[in-house]
Design a protein around this nucleic acid. Sequence first.
RNA 1: GCGGAAGUGGCGGAAUUGGCAGACGCGCCAGCCUUAGGAGCUGGUGGCCGAAAGGCCGUAGGGGUUCGAGUCCCUUCUUCCGCACCA
Length: 832
Amino acid sequence: MAEYEPQRIEAKWQRVWEEKGVFRAIDGDSGRPKYYVLEMLPYPSGTLHMGHMRNYTIGDAVARYKRMCGYNVLHPMGWDAFGLPAENAAIKAGIHPREWTNTNIREFRRVLRRFGFSYDWQREISTCEPEYYRWNQWFFLRMLEMGIAFRKKSKVNWCPECATVLANEQVIDGFCWRHETTRVEMKELEQWFLRITQYSDELLADMAQLRNGWPERVLLMQENWIGKSRGARVNFSVDGTRLGIEVFTTRIDTIYGASALVIAAGHAKMNDLLEGVRGRAAMDAQIKSMLQRSTKAADIATAEKEGFFTGCFAVNPFSGEKVPVWVGNFVLAEYGTGAVMCVPAHDQRDYEFAKKYDLAIKVVVQPVAGQPLRAERMNQAYTDYGNLVDSGRYSQLSSEQAIEKMAADAESAGFGHAETTYRLKDWGVSRQRYWGTPIPVVHCAKDGIVPVPDEQLPVRLPENVSITGLGQSPLASVPAWLNTTCPKCGGPARRETDTMDTFVDSSWYFYRYTDPHNSSAAFDKGKVAYWFQIDQYVGGITHAILHLLYSRFFCKVMRDLKLVGHDEPIARLFTQGMVQKGGVAMSKSRGNVVGAIDMADKYGCDTGRLYTLFAAPPEKDLEWSEQGIEGSARFLNRVFRLVDKYGARLKNVSLEVGGSSDGSPTVKEKLLVRRLHQTLKRVTEDFDTRWHFNTSIALIMELVNELMAQEPLDRDISPAALKGVFEGLVLMLSPMAPHIAEELWAMLGNSDGIYTQKWPRYSAELAREEQIEIPVQINGKVRARIMVEAGLSEDKLKQQAMNDPHLASLVAGKQIVKVVVVPNKLVNIVVR
RNA sequence: GCGGAAGUGGCGGAAUUGGCAGACGCGCCAGCCUUAGGAGCUGGUGGCCGAAAGGCCGUAGGGGUUCGAGUCCCUUCUUCCGCACCA
């Protein structure tokens, strides 16, 4: 009797798969449909734990299933290898970032291989290699030509801990995304940006293409992030000066109700406005304290509204009314125009501000129905649309009509116009760090900023750099690298010392997998055309806005460069839940990780895979349970023992998979074959539509339970029938627990591996039950069950139910009002 | 505050189209086997009443539609996630 030894079996089959190259994707194979399934590439740092493994296991199960269904599957893996931790390690331990990174990559590769994921390893990429980042530089130069990459002096988010600039997307509630306790500061710097805002509308509109394949909430988060808002700009002139202050409003229809103009503390015209105003010094002090306080978003939102009157008045261009100009802490300098009109009756924030500082509350929009509003009776703002009152010649228009007409009138009168604003800002990509892609431009005293010519790419990172984490970009301290000649005039020039945000690397990496070794282009257009779009992307929800938005943006740039023919790179996205322990996501810093290798050593990777798929549906968070994984281990052991017990007897039996034996099948044969096909049907459906692997596994467990219940399996069942059932079982298990499946397949006498096998087709005929149990209800409560022939007509089913003696006695003496019959499902007798 | 997702036994979860609530697994209980078990096998396991047959209750709370509701509608509550003074 053999014993299930997962480690031995797993190593053995991994070797076979490797030797036969069974996971290789074939470029341009026209005989089979293509399927590109991808898991988000990991950042090689720390240890791989079961949270990572869950992600890869889901992708792998799908890849293997699709391969069995006859697809030419592209399932690659690579490394997001540039980034800060490598540099920090260099500072701390004196290891070169490249060495640190490559050591981690080796470890990650070892773990992923240990789990037997069906990657085409020949396509492996690592973003820190010049062969890869060279194309980051190439794309950057194209974007420079297109005007999408540009330089501007701007206030940037600066993390003192990272000693570098952060993108808006990397600032979380005013703190660094890597350092939860480090407050992000604002600094004025010359920076490189990518003009993602040029695609704002398209990024929004093309979500229509993603509606069917992406989770609703990811699209929603992106939509909110882009934050499109239609409204109008209106210029208020400051009384007694030549100064104008523009406001942005989505509710121009309420402008007659404006009782103040409120500007942000950081408003660009603050200095001009306060010029010569009395009490200036006190105001400056207040402004300063307001500017310092803008920190954590959640605090800001709940903070008490504060402000002060500037002593200036502005003229409402519609009404000619003079309104006081205030500075308010609730107005954002970065959004819209940094100034708002304060309409207390129709905006809740304005209402609170007005209440505190005793500003006039003037109702100018009345609800269409119900009691008319009266300012003195209001205890909150009325923010819905309605009909205008006390609004000059616009009175009686509806809000909708007024919004359109007033914007048009403002435009023809020259003091405003309709405008759309976005929350999305251009993507700052400059980083004052070493371990990233050098930005391929030089600074020449004569010619200014000059792009490095394509043929001089890649601009390689110098290897001998002292990294201190202090001060300027580390690249500035390598004179041999820094000093170069200007490609234009040949004179002395200095290289750009900023490197690119690593999100640039991951914005297009999945294209490189289609052509990973191309040294003359980022990729061959034909290969991308063959493999794209990505049919299925699998990853965590954490990247809902950063990576997934940047990737969409890059795709559109590539399309405009005529490199790709599609608008969106990813047809379907699946966001799997996190693996938690103690109610929180596994992470090294929390110290609650369950190591992947530990699991493989203790139970075998098949058990680890099976458990992560079984414990919860893949989109849900999963709480790791040591007892749970024991259960999965027990199950695989049971299957192994069962096949082992009868395998020898079945080895030399030949058959059609899942077929029945000749002649008249026994009751046991019919039952087991039927169960197999019923299971097959539902497991196939789970793979094709829902990805609820937990129910698939439950069904397979039920099949195994039935087999055990029917023991002994060498009596009343032909070897061929039994072998057919066993083989079907093993094939179904193979995408989820591939190693043990191969072993069992071999134990059943097959010399060709499962990797040569097609996914079994179920037969509706064989799956059909002959006799089924029908619950019979009386007034909706189950009172009896009757066994009837399957597929019985409505009339006959009703008749059989009514003829049942037990039911007849229950119904006796009552009036039958109605009988509801659902063929093959149930009967409900309604009595009075 | 806005937006979204969710709420089912002791636990993870199942119920795919409105049709037997609790599949499957964990845990627990009892038994068998064993020198031994963190192994294996068999049976039981939502609550209440009952010796049993059986009955009643039960999917966060309340209401509704329906022959029939975990599923649909209204409403309240709770939890989690995202955004957050976005004008």
